[in-house]
């Protein structure tokens, strides 16, 4: 079962017109069924990395392998079937007039029959708990609903690997909790780029820390979040749930300035 493996080797990328590398020598290997958090400061290169994982950019320097295929312009179709990509802003992902059409977009492009498409849409929407939204236009959904539907738009293509960019940004606490639970229930390989370290703690046994286009650390999430020096170097902070509770340990907090 090698086809759910994600392997990135010495990947470099420079945006056109820029001199600084957005990615300079990224390498890692993610196995079938793993849930991996990718964290790092703003501009560390997380989004740039994710765009390579579903072939939006074919690697010019280094390589990306998705399962049995190296990502090249020729394999990109297969790669996109295998890797489902959920983008940061659901308004970019939901471009069709109704939720149904949006979730059906991928399967239709894969060439399934209308009946099969309808079946897949229903199944994907049920999985994310959004079956009742099928006929709604995307611009009439709440932020949490949009996010759920955005996940459904890739689930309907039955990918093996889910890649998510900031899945909990702009969500209220309950919507955020729902998304985390949803992702927790999946058996797919999951790669989540985020600033929400508490989510990483809840969801991903493994974490990759990025800094200035490089992998700064890669290992068990708990080990990484306990390494205060590493976190500080990468402009990160210990997740709230690992910090001393401010209510029961108020005495240890510095006194407030008047």
């Amino acid at each position: 079962m090698s086809h759910h493996i994600v392997e990135v080797k010495d990947l470099h990328y420079t945006y056109p017109g820029e001199t600084r590398k957005a990615l300079s020598g990224v390498s890692f290997r993610i196995l079938h069924g793993e849930a991996v958090g990718i964290v790092g400061a703003n501009g560390a290169g997380k989004s740039t990395l994710l765009r390579h994982l579903n072939g939006y950019w074919a690697p010019r320097e280094g390589s990306v392998r998705i399962g049995d295929y190296p990502v090249t312009p020729r394999t990109v179709k297969q790669v996109r079937r295998t890797v489902g990509m959920v983008f940061q802003d659901p308004d970019d992902q939901l471009f069709m007039p109704t939720v149904f059409d949006d979730v059906a977009f991928g399967p239709l492009n894969l060439g399934f029959s209308p009946e099969e498409v309808a079946l897949r849409v229903t199944r994907a929407l049920e999985t994310v708990g959004a079956a009742h939204l099928a006929e709604r236009p995307p611009h009439r959904l709440s932020g949490g609903e949009k996010r759920a539907v955005a996940v459904a738009t890739v689930l309907s293509m039955t990918p093996d690997i889910l890649v998510l960019d900031e899945p909990t940004s702009n969500l209220d606490p309950r919507a955020r909790r729902k998304v985390i639970e949803l992702l927790h229930g999946f058996v797919h390989t999951r790669i989540v780029a985020t600033h929400d370290l508490d989510m990483v703690l809840a969801l991903c046994p493994r974490t990759i820390v990025m800094r200035e286009g490089r992998v700064e650390a890669d290992g068990p999430t708990l080990d990484i979040f306990n390494d205060a020096e590493l976190l500080d170097r990468c402009h990160l902070e210990k997740p709230f749930s690992m910090q001393a509770c401010p209510v029961c340990s108020r005495a240890t907090l510095p006194a407030r300035q008047p």
Partner: peptide, 13 residues
């Protein structure tokens, strides 16, 4: 551009 990317990632041709 981002929409185009999202379209491509779902098999837009």
């Amino acid at each position: 551009q981002r929409i185009h990317m999202a379209m491509l990632s779902r098999g837009f041709d």
